[in-house]
């Protein structure tokens, strides 16, 4: 194995939330003295590696920091401390259909989204047919995406992400949108992606899915890593921990 695909070291993320909820200049000027800030430490210094070709699942309760971790990996946030280094092209699937413009047609959105993900126009032109075919949208691709159902948006989003030749996929609980057939097709595509040496990091609450695809499991608890290991070791422990309601939202 060469360099790992993802290296996360001592990663921390803190959000400052203004509790007055004020978002106007007036309130900021008038009440700057009693500005109240609540700090949420969502991630508190976590470190782990993901090797090339590995599939790692992140599990944990709501508010454990899973989505924040993915967003940091997707460079949506900047870390408060620590670092993330990624070797290879990333396709984030944080929300299917994010970044589609409702007034543009499916085809125009294919171009737009693929270019954000790092393809050139020429490269998109080469794969647009495959994307349309995989998404099963057929003639609908020439309609504006505002007329699409959520299932159609999800299919198109997945079809684009899987065809941009990414080396690393970041997936946030999105595979549960299509119908049964499409889900199977997605899993088949993901297996193919992995067989070609692709790396996946995904977040899921679906333990069956985690058992099925993950090589390793990272269990996040209140912004820290509780355990890393094989799914068969981590999941039983994770599922058997009693609910503590003290977890911050």
């Amino acid at each position: 194995m060469s360099k790992p695909a993802i290296v996360v070291s001592e990663l921390s993320k803190q959000f400052n939330v203004n509790t007055s909820g004020a978002n106007s200049l007036k309130t900021a000027l008038l009440w700057w003295k009693r500005r109240q800030r609540t700090e949420y430490k969502v991630l508190r210094g976590i470190s782990f590696d993901v090797a090339r070709g590995e599939c790692v699942a992140v599990v944990g309760r709501n508010g454990a920091g899973k989505s924040t971790l993915l967003s940091l990996l997707a460079r949506v946030y900047k870390p408060t401390a620590g670092s993330v280094s990624i070797h290879g092209r990333v396709a984030p699937l944080l929300e299917l259909g994010a970044g589609f413009h409702p007034d543009l047609t499916g085809l125009e959105n294919i171009y737009f989204n693929s270019i954000i993900l790092g393809l050139t126009r020429k490269e998109v032109a080469e794969r647009v047919d495959r994307i349309v075919e995989f998404s099963e949208l057929r003639d609908h691709v020439t309609a504006p995406t505002r007329t699409f159902s959520s299932g159609m948006l999800a299919r198109l989003g997945f079809a684009i992400a899987i065809h941009v030749d990414a080396e690393i996929l970041l997936v946030d609980e999105v595979l549960a949108v299509g119908d049964f057939d499409f889900e199977r097709k997605c899993f088949a595509k993901i297996d193919e992606f992995r067989a070609n040496g692709g790396t996946i990091l995904f977040v899921s609450h679906n333990m069956q899915a985690v058992r099925r695809v993950a090589d390793r499991c990272v269990w996040l608890h209140q912004g820290q890593i509780r355990m890393i290991g094989k799914p068969d070791e981590v999941i039983p422990l994770y599922e058997s921990t009693p609910l503590d309601r003290a977890t911050p939202a």
């Binding site: 460079r75 949506v76 970044g99």
Partner: peptide, 9 residues
Amino acid sequence: MPLIKKIYL
């Protein structure tokens, strides 16, 4: 905002 919350550019 919905775009830049989900994807880097």
